Structure formats: structure tokens, C-alpha cells
Amino acid sequence: MSEQTRTTAPAVASTTHEAPRIVTRTGPGKFFADTGAVFTREILLVLRDPFTLIFSLLQPLIFLGLFGPLLTGTFGGGFGGPGGEGLTTGETLQWFVPGVIVMISLFGTSMTGSNLLYEIMTGSYERVLATPLDRSAILVGRALKEFAPLLVQGLLIAVVCIPFGFTFHVVPALVGLVLLGIFGIGVGAFSHALALAAKNREWLFWGVQQSLLFPLLILSGMMLPLEAGPSWMQTAAKFNPLTYMVDAERVLFAGTFDDPAVLWGVVAAAATCAVGVAVGIRSTRRTV
């Protein structure tokens, strides 16, 4: 028996080995890696159906084609330069195009929760929560997925308007789009939190989303100048963070950095992003 033990012991020893160490990222490295994983998963779904991106370009082009001439006539009627002279089509587009880009980005990021509602109904969202993904990375990755196509759309719209007199300042415009992306992360996080609060009641999500979306758009001066509105609208616009985003985008798309509107836009974007992500993370943890 002792001889058999001596002959088998080396074989047992040769098959034993140390368990592999699992290296996990922590801190900022984990956040960026998880955000990239969520973004890749979400954007692949969009790339598999590119016709949705093409179709989504119709709405801003309709606004430019139908609303733009109306604005040109309005500006020509007295909202033009210091002497009341009218503006050209190119000058009108310089004012209107940044507002349209903000509008389509707001539409996209505010509907982040609609995709989440579908995943909740199908049960796939629970499987995502079961993974070791960072909760804030889930929010940011989803919001970036909504904003990335809008970034391409914004650039295409600006390029399309160049033959009609629109001046495209590349570097300031890209800075404006990055700033808009930060703001969109916060809006997407708010939409995410709203979807979690609504859960299986889609009507509640859409009711709240639509009730908030259009007043914010109108009170930001995105479509029409607020200078022509009553004093109470101008006062309400000062409490609308979207107002500062629209003003900053118009200044940046005009090729200017050294304007106080840019600084106020940075503050509005950072505050919206910080508060939105905090609210979204809190809502996500409550569902676990």
C-alpha cells in the first residue's frame, strides 16, 4: 500500500495548480470600460438598422425647410439688426441651425427611457443589472448611444445648410457638440429615472416627458426669439437650463469662444449632467 502511495503521489502533485487570479478594474478605469461596453452594445443595435438614422433626419430638415423661411420673414419684419433691417437667409440660418441641433439632441436623449421601458417588459434589463457593470456607466452609456447618431445628424445638417449661406466654424462647432453631449447625458439620465418610476405604465412616461419637453423648448428661445414675448416668458426662460445651452450653441456656431454665454452654457451642461446622473443612479439602486 505504501508503494502504491509513493507511485501515485507525484501524479497527483503534477495535476494540482494554482487557481487563476481574476483581475477586476476599479475606479475611473472600471467606469470608462463599463461605459464603453454599454455604449458598444447599444450602438450595435442602431447600426444594424441604419434606416432609422436616415428617417430621423427628415424632421430637422422639415423644420429647416418650412420654419426657416417663416423666420426670415419675421426677422425681416423688425427682428433684424440694430436699425430694424431684415436679415438674409444665411444670417437667419446662423441663428436657427444651432437651435435645431439642440432640439434633435433633446428629443433623442429625452427618449432614452422609452428603450428602457421595452427592456423592462421583456426582462432584459434585469439581466443587465445582474452583471457587475457600474450603475453610472449604464446611464452614461445609454445616453451616449442616443447622442452619437445625433452628433452625426447635427454635422450633416450644418453641411447641408452651407450652400444656403450658413457659415460652419468647425472647431467651435465641435466644442459646442461636445458641450451638448454633456448636457444630453444628464437629460438621458433623467429620462432613465422617469422610466424606472413609470415601469409598466408607458402612458405615465410619455405624459410627463411630453408635458415637460415642449415648454422647455419654447421657453429656451430655440424656435422663436424670446425678445418678442411677454416679460413673464423672459423671466421663466432664465430658470430654464436649456436657454443657456441654446445661447451657448449659437455663440459657438458663430465661431466665438470669448462670450459669457459659453461659460453659462458650460455651467448649465455640467449641472444638468451631475444632477441627472445622481438622480438616475439613485433610481437604479432602488430597483435592485
Rank of each mutant, 00 (worst) to 15 (best):
I101C: 05
I101G: 00
V102A: 10
V102E: 04
V102S: 07
M103K: 11
I104D: 05
I104W: 05
S105M: 08
S105K: 01
S105D: 01
S105E: 02
S105R: 05
L106G: 00
L106P: 01
L106N: 01
L106C: 00
L106F: 06
F107Y: 13
F107G: 02
F107C: 01
G108M: 05
G108R: 08
T109W: 03
T109S: 15
S110T: 13
S110Y: 02
M111D: 06
T112H: 07
T112E: 13
T112M: 14
T112K: 09
T112I: 14
T112S: 14
G113I: 04
G113H: 08
G113E: 04
G113P: 08
S114I: 11
S114H: 13
S114F: 14
S114M: 13
N115C: 00
N115D: 09
L116E: 06
L117Q: 13
L117N: 11
L117W: 02
L117Y: 04
L117K: 09
Y118R: 15
Y118C: 01
Y118V: 13
Y118H: 13
E119R: 13
E119S: 08
E119Q: 14
E119I: 04
E119P: 02
I120K: 15
I120S: 10
I120F: 13
M121E: 15
M121A: 14
T122P: 00
T122A: 06
T122D: 15
T122Q: 08
G123L: 09
G123I: 07
S124I: 11
Y125W: 15
Y125I: 01
Y125M: 10
E126T: 01
E126H: 03
R127Y: 11
R127M: 12
R127E: 09
R127C: 00
R127G: 01
V128S: 11
V128E: 11
V128I: 14
L129G: 04
L129V: 05
L129T: 06
L129R: 15
A130T: 13
A130I: 10
A130Q: 14
P132Q: 03
P132T: 04
P132V: 03
L133T: 05
L133Y: 06
D134V: 00
D134G: 04
R135I: 02
R135C: 06
R135Y: 11
S136P: 08
S136R: 15
S136E: 15
S136Q: 12
S136V: 09
A137H: 09
A137N: 09
A137D: 11
A137Y: 10
I138Y: 09
L139I: 10
L139V: 11
L139Y: 05
L139C: 08
V140R: 04
V140S: 05
G141Y: 08
R142H: 12
R142N: 10
R142A: 07
R142I: 02
R142M: 08
R142G: 02
R142S: 12
A143F: 08
